[in-house]
Design a binder for these strands. Structure first.
Length: 60
DNA sequence: ATAATTGT
DNA sequence: ACAATTAT
């Protein structure tokens, strides 16, 4: 797989587990802190967008 | 303009 | 409270 399009197991807004690839990935971190990686996903069931934490080692 | 996302 | 992002 091309780097940067890996899928992740995430909890959708409907409470279902799904293996999805984020449309966007970024680091959410205050200055001087580690923060968390966040992905923007679209739930294929509902079509709703949602944000979810990514593993710290998720490729950016 | 706001909600929502995590961890410190 | 703070950080970035963007669909709503």
């Amino acid at each position: 797989m091309p780097a940067g399009k890996k899928s992740v197991k995430v909890k959708t807004p409907n409470g279902k587990e799904a293996e999805l690839s984020p449309e966007k990935v970024w680091l959410l971190a205050p200055k001087g802190r580690k923060g968390v990686k966040i992905g923007l996903f679209k739930d294929p069931e509902s079509g709703k967008y949602f944000r979810h934490k990514l593993p710290d080692d998720y490729p950016m």
